[in-house]
Nucleic acid binder design. Structure first.
Lengths: 347, 347
DNA sequence: CTGTTAGCGCTTTCAT
DNA sequence: ATGAAAGCGCTAACAG
């Protein structure tokens, strides 16, 4: 049955050393070696020393898998997101990775590539891994899949969607506040004729930012907010949206609900001979990578994305540690306005 | 010793179902359940059906850890890199994640945060996990740490450093060629007075891109290449470097060895009242996120970063599969010039 | 075709 | 202070 000497036999050739090999080399039992590792106090100094020597000599590395099988606990968590190549999720991943590292957890990266089926596959995989938990930035609105994962013993934290706190912890950014911040800034600068270049309102973020923008203008009866909606939130859409904004009764300020859009608008405006911010001020949303590099360094709403990832992991670990004493929380982060030149401080 | 009924006892309350639970429910032995899972042919259709029903009823999910402990194989690989939040590594991570998914491997994300000690810790962790392999984008030049990981049975592939093929597989981009590409383009546009804004030559990439630039001008005796080196390769450095480039005998073209630098240069040039590309052409390097969003959409050298990550994983998996039949390879990818407006096709 | 059984590498009583 | 032995959940001989 054994390929070779078996557990008490002599050291296998290529394979890494096992705890039993160390025990044999040190002339002690496996229990003692294990105790050296896990209950240092229980072993005499001389024995401890001999064991340590043997471990070093054999380059012994404990087999995590075996340890966890025996202990019945897992120390890995999953990070499920739509696309790490996207700056938003990349930064989130960084936060999650740092938190996992700090707590000695292993982070399994699950990139669903914007594909629901793939996301599903990853969730199943995490169950098979007996992952202690998962941080999920879900693709769709479906909650059933997530609940199933829960039922399988994987603790959850959801990112970027304000979840009813009864289900699981969640972290998100207050997009209403962000939208308000952007437009309030433009109002404070004296603008009264403002255009909102936004994505589809069916996207929660877009709807929220719109809502915030409305709240801001509502306080200023003399202000006007006109809305332009685009299908895809990229620079190209921003450029074409801007073309409708240069005629008579042109707005003096534009709020683009993401940075790509805002930069596209800026490019088109400049191309049309207008000056930014002198003729038209522009505010974006996101503050990822590109904002400072645009044609005019972009004033934009920054989100604490790194914190989002870090906090999600920490909430989840709290649930793991506290067990049933744990109470689900929804942490909502406040975005902040980063003022650059496309809409500077003074009017 | 047992907390409860033990392996043959009745189903534990909260814990996930085990294979033994399924066997009990289906009225068969554990071996049969295992066979249904792994050797479908060996089990009769009626029995198979009963077992499947039981699995569904109990929501049985195999315990990956136990499977692997028994089989002696691991199906997870590590991805060790300096910073996922960095667009370059983020894109690489995406390639690696996709490849891992395709081959049913689990990807452990190890973000060393540019910290050698942390990288070291991750390498040790991967050994404890008995990871089948690791893709490493190493921080420093040290090779010893990597060799140690090898010795511990973890297969390796190194990214972004042309490794002698005797040690392990590696993938990288031909930076000499990239530098040549950039400058050849400028020469073809008719430029003869070119400035190279570069980082420290102690950085391999910078030295290589410089080398390539030199090769290009060497073919044109009438061309001149002047060099400006900066300490940090960001937009700020680009801006200050550009200020030395506007006086008499100013270059008609600038090659910035990364996109941030090139955009900084462009910003400063425009600020000084020059037109890009009409007065000065600019070429960057990298083609990450920001290139198309700059003040002038940037002509730049693109690297197949996604492929880098994907290929690294695949080379490593080949080593895992082939064992000693495997031969280490160094795959060097060719960068490509992406022509945008800062140095358009026609002069 | 199905069941019995011996471990994978480790931790942990319980006895010495 | 140390050791013997029983499994964690699963697979793979081997026997029936």
């Amino acid at each position: 049955m054994h390929e070779d000497g078996g557990p008490a036999g002599r050291r296998r050739s290529g394979a890494p050393a096992r705890l039993a090999d160390v025990a044999l080399a040190a002339g002690v039992s496996t229990a003692t070696v294990s105790n050296v590792l896990n209950w240092p106090g229980k072993v005499g100094p001389a024995t401890t020393e001999r064991v340590r020597q043997a471990m070093a000599a054999l380059d012994y590395v404990p087999h995590e898998g075996a340890v966890r099988l025996r202990r019945g606990s897992s120390r890995s968590i999953g990070l499920v997101l739509p696309d790490v190549a996207n700056a938003f999720y990349a930064r989130m991943a960084r936060g999650a990775a740092d938190a996992a590292f700090d707590h000695h957890y292993t982070l399994i990266l699950c990139d669903s590539a914007d594909d629901a089926e793939r996301e599903e596959g990853y969730l199943a995989m995490l169950a098979e891994q007996r992952a202690a938990g998962a941080v999920v930035a879900p693709l769709g609105a479906g909650t059933a899949r997530l609940l199933r994962l829960r039922r399988r013993g994987v603790r959850l934290a959801v990112v970027d969607r304000a979840e009813p706190t009864t289900q699981s912890c969640s972290v998100s950014v207050d997009d209403v506040r962000g939208g308000r911040l952007a437009v309030e800034h433009l109002l404070a600068l004296g603008h009264r004729n403002i255009a909102l270049v936004n994505g589809a309102l069916s996207i929660r973020q877009c709807a929220d930012r719109y809502e915030g923008a409305l709240q801001a203008v509502a306080c200023r009866p003399d202000a006007r907010l006109r809305q332009v909606n685009v299908a895809t939130m990229d620079a190209e859409s921003g450029r074409s949206a801007a073309s409708g904004l240069t005629g008579a009764d042109a707005p003096t300020a534009v709020f683009g609900t993401n940075d790509q859009l805002a930069i596209g608008v800026t490019q088109a405006l400049l191309g049309a001979g207008l000056r930014v911010p002198d003729d038209v001020a522009v505010v974006g949303y996101g503050d990822l990578e590109i904002a400072p590099y645009g044609p005019v360094p972009l004033t934009t709403v920054a989100q604490p994305v790194y914190e989002l990832g870090r906090t999600a992991v920490e909430l989840m670990l709290d649930e793991i540690d506290q067990g049933d004493r744990h109470e689900h929380r929804s942490r909502v982060f406040a975005p902040e306005l980063v003022v650059r030149q496309s809409a500077p401080r003074v009017s």
